[in-house]
Design a protein around this nucleic acid. Structure first.
Lengths: 136, 136
DNA sequence: AATAGACTCATACTAAAGTACCAAACCGTT
DNA sequence: AACGGTTTGGTACTTTAGTATGAGTCTATT
């Protein structure tokens, strides 16, 4: 975090410097105007690309938005979805039952209903389908 | 695709126009130099951000690079990895056996070895671990 | 108050998944 | 040719997963 601030401070300083240098270069008439304009354009193009890449990095790590509308369309209830999320964690029915303070029977019924609604034969297939539908 | 070309052509044209306008504005001395430099900087900053966003969109849809070195580190053989990929597709052992022209027994041994190497108790957990290790 | 949907849980199954152990064939290396 | 690792496959068994069915509870809505 400190590093980020330092980088940004340096960047802003460098840009201000470029700004002033350009101004006086134009006024003094020593340098070709085209070159200065091009230099500014290129520098800010690069800065734009860099800034954008930095800001996108965090978002794009696991940004696959969950389609909550699709969950409703499939008539998946909140409890069922909760179970689905636990399946995705790799938990067994018994483990899910323990974490949710329910009996294994209840989890089994939820899973069965999930498989029907997701049109899957196995829990692994349910995961694959759910990811394809952007539900997970 | 045609749209992209048109957009880019228009963009380049606009930039060239800006370039020329800037040059003559500076030479004629009608406009403040700072404003022109700032305008160029802002325009190219925005262009840079836009271009980068466009180019990243395709990559970032499912860009979670697979760490092949980690696969080797875990001593996961090519056949085992192949089976892992099929598990991720939601296939059963029997189905994997059919698609790879192997017996179900063979798939079971591969799966068992995978579970050991990934330190998982179930295939769903194996998937979760594999994704966490960026193997899938 | 009655109804519908969600949630819970049980029993009794069948079907997969997974373990343990063994063994043969294959393949590249020493 | 012998060795180590991979791949393949079998048997026998245990453990999960999943299905089918029925039923009681809870809650919001009519």
């Amino acid at each position: 975090m400190k590093k980020t601030i330092a980088v940004f401070a340096g960047l802003i300083f460098a840009l201000l410097l470029l700004f002033q240098v350009s101004k006086y270069a134009i006024i003094s008439g020593n340098v070709n105007i085209e070159i200065i304009i091009a230099a500014i354009a290129i520098v800010f193009l690069i800065v734009g690309i860099y800034l954008n890449k930095k800001s996108l990095q965090k978002e794009t790590v696991d940004t696959t938005e969950i389609d909550y509308n699709k969950i409703k369309e499939l008539d998946i209830t909140s409890r069922e979805y909760e179970v689905l999320q636990h399946i995705a964690q790799g938990l067994s029915n018994k483990e899910i039952a323990e974490t949710l303070f329910l009996s294994e029977s209840t989890i089994k019924t939820h899973v069965s209903n999930l498989l029907l609604k997701l049109n899957a034969k196995r829990r692994t297939q349910a995961l694959q389908v759910a990811k394809e539908l952007q539900i997970l």
